[in-house]
Write a protein that binds this DNA or RNA. Structure first.
Length: 600
DNA sequence: AGCCCTTGCGCG
DNA sequence: AAAGCGCGCAAGGGCT
């Protein structure tokens, strides 16, 4: 492992964790020679107690997890890999590799090695052992790379002080996020297998043997088939979109897909059964007994977050779908005996962010209220809250259909600054420019493929190039029928441009919302540490879950009220850190509960 | 058998 | 007429 202590250290080996530590100035200048530590976690713990430095390491995902597993936690860090991603993004190189080795290679004008994909969890420990062993002789070398890369990153951040004064905060918050993610991965979310079982059995019937369908699903599958005229046992599979589509068309429905929202309202006994089947089947396949077998250990669920895994800076997850857990399964999340869950949700976060970043006084006035949409409705929509919400969401997502036009027109006249803000972001995206979040995270530049599609420049091989995987604008590529090739091109090019416009329009909001949430999380973590320090007789409260704009803290009940207060304090501070003085409020819905499902 | 793509749906 | 943003995961289905 490699660590630097504003400070840095390098370590290797999974056994007794030897490693290196080097003290640095804020700028990354060495204050002394690298020091070898036989037991790196112990050395880190000691220096954390005595100095409390900002630790620098190559990647919290690897390095800090190791420390946490050894029982050591720190207050602050600089995560070189995550900061590299942010800086590369600003330099228009989102796709460049971001590992320590890659960053170091770039510094020396050498070709950067590609990032290695994360191994599946089963292989991970084995590989890690191997890597660590192989790395051991390199530990001192990795420290040198780390110190260089850190100093370079500090300079790159400072060099952008004028254009992006928020970058330093962003780097700190992103790094703190990595601390939180590693700690959640180690602590786990309390998860009651018996409650999970009860929910599943209630909805699906008892757990089946092997990979058979649970009773209710099997029964529904047969009845859906029968309702569409299939003899029982003649192999109608409701999971097959092809078969379902055929059955629906045979029943006289001109449908283009079998999506649930598309089917709802179709008057046919089979459709109703099919919708019920879909819902239960989803529960079974995505979060049923197999999921439980794979991901719940010792009454804990261990989410594997990917900090900054989304281009907007939101977190993603790996393997177990932690951000998609069905709300009904929150019933299985129950605090330990003598503990509580403090659940806090930042309501209406994105429209509030729009109010804050656009400086629209009218919208900011509404965002100073507890229910932004109601205030907006009172001010501009004759009290029609649903219309106000629909219009504002449509404005932030770039919606044009569904009779939303008049709502947008009202918003444009009443809240010109807010609407101008998102529309400018959309125009930037359509014309191939880059937009940035409040703190300075940049959206990806358009790929060559996009440029080719929009401008007509570039040849076939560019269109085939990898580039735009996941890039907006290429959803339905097929040109319908013969027609005029030039007209087709014009249509497709306009479509790709508008798709990117919707992306950038939303990016400025979503990315800034992610920043507020990240700073909130970082400050909450700090508050919790202070709370733990003030209550040495109690186990520490732990952040155990985070979903974009919502946190869950598992805490000894004695300090649950203080934790709830800390959550609010952190949110207020986050507002100030990210937006400075603003009338916009970011109210939380906070609940102290035994069971996650009981929050709101 | 395994890879890759599409479809569909869960979450915010 | 019309295309509202961002994700991850499982299953089907075509392919090698």
């Amino acid at each position: 492992m490699a660590l630097a202590a504003e400070t840095a250290a390098v370590g290797a080996g999974d056994r007794n964790h030897p490693g290196w530590i080097q003290a640095l100035t804020d700028d990354g200048m060495p204050l002394g020679p690298p020091e070898h530590a036989e037991d790196l976690p112990a050395a880190v713990a000691e220096r954390e107690r005595e100095v409390g430095p900002r630790w620098v390491w190559a990647s919290g995902e690897d390095d800090y997890s190791l420390l946490v597993r050894a029982g050591v936690r720190v207050a602050r860090c600089h995560d070189a890999a995550l900061v590299e991603v942010i800086l590369l993004g600003r330099e228009g190189r989102h796709e460049a590799p971001h590992s320590l080795a890659a960053a170091s290679a770039r510094l020396h004008g050498l070709p950067a090695p590609p990032d290695s994909p994360r191994a599946a969890p089963e292989e991970q420990s084995a590989l890690f052992g191997l890597d660590a062993a192989a790395d051991a002789p390199d530990a001192a070398h990795r420290l040198r790379m780390l110190v260089e890369v850190y100093a370079d990153q500090v300079q790159r951040i400072a060099a952008q002080e004028r254009e992006a004064p928020g970058l330093r905060l962003l780097a700190a918050a992103e790094s703190a996020g990595a601390l939180v993610a590693a700690e959640i991965a180690a602590d786990g979310l309390p998860w009651r297998v018996d409650v999970h079982d009860a929910v599943l059995s209630e909805m699906l019937g008892p757990r089946p043997f092997g990979d058979a369908r649970p009773a209710k699903l099997a029964d529904l599958a047969v009845r859906v088939g029968e309702a569409f005229g299939h003899a029982p046992g003649r192999g109608f599979n409701p999971d097959s979109p092809g078969q379902v589509l055929k059955a629906l068309r045979y029943a006289g429905f001109q449908v283009s897909s079998t999506r649930a929202w598309h089917l709802r309202g179709l008057n046919h006994p089979g459709v109703e059964l099919l919708l019920e089947y879909k819902e239960l089947s989803r529960l079974h396949t995505a979060h049923g007994w197999t999921w439980q077998d794979n991901w719940i250990r010792n009454g804990r669920y261990y989410p594997e977050y990917v900090v900054g895994g989304v281009v907007t800076g939101r977190w993603a997850t790996r393997n177990s779908g932690a951000l998609q857990i069905p709300r009904i399964m929150r019933r299985a999340v129950v605090a330990d005996q003598g503990w509580k869950l403090v659940v806090a949700d930042a309501g209406q976060l994105e429209p509030r962010v729009l109010a804050a970043v656009s400086g629209d006084t009218g919208l900011a006035r509404a965002a100073g209220e507890g229910d932004l949409y109601a205030a907006l409705a009172a001010e501009a929509f004759d009290g029609d809250r649903a219309a106000a919400k629909l219009g504002l969401l449509g404005a932030m997502y770039g919606q044009t259909s569904g009779g939303i036009g008049p709502l947008l027109a009202v918003l444009r006249t009443r809240f010109p600054a807010a609407m101008g803000f998102v529309e400018e972001a959309a125009r930037a995206g359509e014309s191939g420019r880059v937009v940035r979040s409040r703190l300075g995270r940049a959206c990806p530049a358009p790929s060559r493929r996009w440029r080719a599609a929009v401008t007509g420049m570039g040849g076939e091989e560019e269109r085939a190039e990898e580039g735009g995987v996941g890039e907006p604008g290429f959803d339905d590529a097929e040109a319908d029928g013969e027609g005029d090739a030039a007209a087709d091109f014009g249509r497709q090019s306009a479509q790709a441009a508008r798709a990117r416009g919707r992306f950038t329009r939303n990016f400025v909001i979503q990315a800034t919302a992610a920043e507020w949430a990240l700073v909130w999380l970082a400050l909450l973590r700090r508050e919790l540490a202070a709370l733990a320090a003030a209550n040495p007789g109690l186990p520490a409260p732990r952040l155990v879950f985070f979903v974009h704009d919502e946190v869950v803290v598992h805490t000894p009940q004695e300090v649950a009220a203080e934790v709830a207060e800390a959550v609010t304090t952190a949110a207020d501070q986050a507002r100030l850190f990210v937006f400075g003085p603003t009338p916009v409020r970011f109210p939380l819905v906070t609940a102290v509960v035994d069971c996650y499902a009981d929050a709101k």
